[in-house]
Amino acid sequence: MTPSTYKLSFQLYSTRNFPPQDDVLEGLAAMGYDAVEPWLPDFATDAKGFRKRIDNAGLECLGFHMPLKGLIEEPMRYIDIAHTLGDSPLMIPPYVMPEERPFDADGWRRIGEQLAKGAELAQANNLRVAWHNHDFEYRPLDDGSRPIDLMLEAAGENVGFEIDFAWVTRAWADPYAELKKYAPRILAIQLKDTAPPGTSGEGGWTPPGDGIVDWDALWPLFATTPADHLVVEHDNPADWRRVAQRAHDFVVSKGAKRND
Rank of each mutant, 00 (worst) to 15 (best):
D260P: 12
K181E: 08
F250N: 03
E113M: 12
G156K: 06
L8W: 06
S4H: 13
G203Y: 05
W131S: 01
A122L: 05
L187Y: 10
K117S: 10
L150V: 13
L150S: 09
A238M: 02
G198D: 09
R77F: 10
V251G: 00
F136L: 02
A256L: 14
D104K: 09
F103M: 13
D228F: 02
F222M: 05
P207R: 12
I111R: 11
K48Y: 05
P38N: 12
N158T: 14
R241G: 02
T225R: 05
E233H: 08
L71Y: 06
G144S: 11
Y13M: 10
R16K: 13
K7Y: 00
V251I: 12
E137G: 00
G255Y: 12
D135T: 08
T194W: 01
D239P: 03
E74G: 02
A238F: 02
K52N: 08
G211Q: 10
T224S: 14
D193M: 05
M1K: 14
P140M: 09
E202C: 07
Q245N: 08
A119G: 09
S4G: 09
E157Q: 14
G107A: 10
G49P: 04
Y78A: 02
A35Y: 02
D210P: 00
E233D: 03
T45F: 12
L221A: 13
L85R: 10
G198Y: 04
D174L: 08
A124S: 12
P19Q: 06
G209L: 10
T225P: 05
A171Y: 03
W172A: 15
Q114R: 13
H248T: 01
R110W: 05
A119Y: 05
K48M: 03
N158M: 11
G86E: 03
N126S: 15
A177R: 13
K192R: 14
